[in-house]
Design a protein around this nucleic acid. Sequence first.
DNA 1: GTCTATAAAGGGATAGAC
DNA 2: GTCTATCCCTTTATAGAC
Lengths: 206, 206
Amino acid sequence: MDKVQQILTAARAIFMQQGYAAASMDAVATRAGVSKATLYVYFANKQELFASVILEERARYAPSFLAGEQGREPMPARLLRFARALVVFLLSAEIVASCRLVIAEAERVPGLGQAFYNNGPARLLERLEQFMARAMGAGLLRRADAHVAAEQFIDLVRGDLQLRALLGLKQGLGSRAVDAVIRRGVESFYRAYEPAARVRIRKPAA
Amino acid sequence: MDKVQQILTAARAIFMQQGYAAASMDAVATRAGVSKATLYVYFANKQELFASVILEERARYAPSFLAGEQGREPMPARLLRFARALVVFLLSAEIVASCRLVIAEAERVPGLGQAFYNNGPARLLERLEQFMARAMGAGLLRRADAHVAAEQFIDLVRGDLQLRALLGLKQGLGSRAVDAVIRRGVESFYRAYEPAARVRIRKPAA
DNA sequence: GTCTATAAAGGGATAGAC
DNA sequence: GTCTATCCCTTTATAGAC
């Protein structure tokens, strides 16, 4: 393997596990199986190594949830499929560790939070928005702002699961509990966005 | 002021600003206006000082959103009031810094995440659940699981605002953008939970 | 209890051999 | 390019005077 990749892989693991400040270049070198001096051949200093790790990370955060078949599956079932794939992804150890690190260092590394958001949540949102727009066009969802719908879909199916994962809670993250949150999230989303003609009691916002 | 409080206040500021690992006892001592040796009179070591800061923090995370008048204000307007108070709270610099710190150290400090969740989100959720239950009892909201309703209400009005704040994004956190997210969140929540009799097209979950 | 001064350890970064 | 050995600064923690 390329030595640079070897170092980056080791650094990623160490940073994720220990956090930026607590991670030592010694630990990275040992894990990478090289000497500390070698690190400094490829990376000017600790900060630059960290930045490289984060840039590397972007590529990983590009899953393809919406890839599934577009058949004439009922809308709620399709939403449920997407939701499950999304949440499995969000709760994966890799993504959780990645989020932790970025959130922890966001204030101290200029542009870190923005880069992460653009390459992660923003991309995801964009794809989901396109899906929502098509579904609205086909009459499978009520006509509304597709961007808002995509955002609220994510909000509802994510629930507080991601927060729990970030906080390292063990309870409430079993597969049954997770699936319950997802199902209820999809259910409420569909209630708010199903295409049925409805009678409104009063205007929702005062 | 009590010297212990003086130290805790300084430590809180330093930890929030720099993170656990990067914060130095020197910095805490200087900020507290005492010598470093004095710190060790009251706290055995850095970890214990950190733990004390976090325990202190619990008390702060107990706002009273639902305190407002219970008058015969229309339900959506009432929800909107709660939502605004909630989001203002979640986006406050203090809470954001607090969340960042806890998320960053959750994996390394046993019980930290659980303590934070129990004293923060869980309490909030419990109060909101009671409110939802009363509203459902009074026919102001569709009868449903009050706990789920409370959770989804929070999810919807929070949107990705909290994530954006945690990531330190400057865009999308202006008061107008924030209020738009809140209003749309309340709107969708009310669509899903308004008490109107409705005709469902098909079952939401396959 | 509080300070100054310092011990002891760790970690970022580099010099110089190969 | 890669290593060993080391410099030097920071940081945690403590000793000892007052």
